[in-house]
Nucleic acid binder design. Sequence first.
DNA 1: TAATTAATTAAACGTTTGATTAATATTTTT
DNA 2: AAAAATATTAATCAAACGTTTAATTAATTA
Lengths: 217, 217
Amino acid sequence: MPGIKPQIPHQSNRSGRPAAESSGDVRAAILDVAQDLFARQGYAATPVRDIATAAGVTPAMIHYYFGSKEVLLRTVLERAVEPLAEAIETLKATSKASPDFIVRTLMSTIARHPGLPYLVLREVMLPGGTMQAHFAGHLAPRLGGALPDILDTLQRREEIRDDPPPATAALILLSLVMFPFIVRPIAEQVLGVGLHGDALESFQDHVAAFVQRGFLP
Amino acid sequence: MPGIKPQIPHQSNRSGRPAAESSGDVRAAILDVAQDLFARQGYAATPVRDIATAAGVTPAMIHYYFGSKEVLLRTVLERAVEPLAEAIETLKATSKASPDFIVRTLMSTIARHPGLPYLVLREVMLPGGTMQAHFAGHLAPRLGGALPDILDTLQRREEIRDDPPPATAALILLSLVMFPFIVRPIAEQVLGVGLHGDALESFQDHVAAFVQRGFLP
DNA sequence: TAATTAATTAAACGTTTGATTAATATTTTT
DNA sequence: AAAAATATTAATCAAACGTTTAATTAATTA
């Protein structure tokens, strides 16, 4: 029988034709392309064939490496979410985490991975999201559960006011840090608020200052 | 030839079987169901057949009244967005529009139409949104273009600080007002921040106060 | 080098998709 | 009451979908 159990491909992969355009890891090429297309078009609107074509492989390869389109999405999400999750965990470990610093850290992390908000929002947070069931208890706590703890600590130290409860404060913070990037095209074209380069830094300053005032003791 | 030009159906509609479960307007029944399903599952993930079944009609009826699935979505969006657009226009016409009042007006309008944020976000604001091209210049200005004007007026009257430019302030405001409802399921289940009934009013208070401090002259 | 395993391809599978058709029933108009 | 316009159904279409299969080629192992 031909290859049935898809395993992690070996490092050196020299087949007849170098299927993946770049180095050699077909699996990684599929993941890269899928992440891009899922972020830009959404899971339901992205045919497996398109991913395969863009990755320079056959549709069968995707099922060979991932088994199903849904597993591919899950794999993409787990990989894509890592930078943000790490940023939040680092924040939690850092004792010197002022609201200003938190805002800047989160915003620049998201800015560095433009597709991330779309992926997380569409596939796990919005109702009907394909990964909602699987991620409700697996990913969301790692992303959203740590922030209230951080803010709780700040309140106990009386570095910020205790007015909004930690969870509410976390939701406010998340709103300011994520939403602008979610509606980035509209923000830039309709409102004229740039979120690239210098304009992004200026926007970060404004948001950080706004949050600082909002949390003022 | 059988009916070609779908027109606005007449008021009293008594056919063989009362196709639409409720009163008689089949077109409205389709619109209602489509709005609900599009909001809960997204356009790409909602088959025309499902809409037809849920509305108690034949798939052909949808093409009879709307011509295509895409026109149906456009019609749904134009209808669904009306309450929010009116709220913003009313705000603009009202001279007594403090930040507190703006926040409360927008939030309660959105809370009154739970599916609205999902619809607008998924189909017009997120990249790959089916209605992005058609609505970029047609709907977005009506929704997002008015807020900067309102905030500009407040700044000229020195009722709020002039620190963030009006457009930036508008984006901040929109973030706080929309995002919580977008991630409502996660907000409630993971963070434990309720957005219904009394809990919603409490949340509104916190956000309004936070915004008031952020805009303090 | 022979045998085995892994990677890949081309073709097709059955299903679901949005859309259309032709026929029929119901109103409305004349 | 006849004619015309409108509304609805059941059946069907071609295309696109995710997935599978069988065969083939390359790499690894024995």
